[in-house]
């Protein structure tokens, strides 16, 4: 299933926009827009999402090209980490008070 909002019925396809706000930070999803092709999608993304120096780099991805997890199966799909709190440092309490641990 593609990202929400995409429709084959529209003249221009939907693109999802990701912006790197500054060096050292990963690209983050900021929103979407319509554009006829990738070149114009990048250009429109600049105008729409970086009018105030919000970014140093932009990615655009056709919404149709995004595959999402099955929304109906969200419970079961993400169940496996539940009950596995031994994966978190806070599970190990005996070392409390010991320095540098």
């Amino acid at each position: 299933m593609s990202a929400p909002g995409a429709s084959e019925k529209e003249v221009w396809p939907l693109w999802e926009v990701f912006v790197r706000s500054s060096r050292g930070i990963s690209h983050t999803h900021v929103g979407s827009l319509h554009a006829p092709d990738a070149t114009l999608a990048v250009r429109n993304a600049r105008d729409l999402y970086t009018r105030r120096n919000e970014g140093v780099s932009i990615w655009v991805v056709p919404a149709e090209a995004i595959t999402t997890s099955d929304p109906d199966a969200k419970g079961a799909f993400f169940e496996s980490p539940a009950g596995k709190n031994y994966r978190h440092a806070s599970y190990y309490s005996k070392s409390e008070g010991v320095k540098h641990l």
Binding site: K9, E10, S32, H34
Partner: peptide, 26 residues
């Protein structure tokens, strides 16, 4: 100009949000 451009942008953010509910921009 900057203000009017912002307003166009605000319209586009909101249209995108509405589209996630199953209506098209058109």
């Amino acid at each position: 100009l900057a203000k009017v451009q912002d307003e166009a942008g605000h319209g586009l953010y909101l249209y995108s949000a509405a589209q996630t509910l199953g209506i098209t921009r058109d």
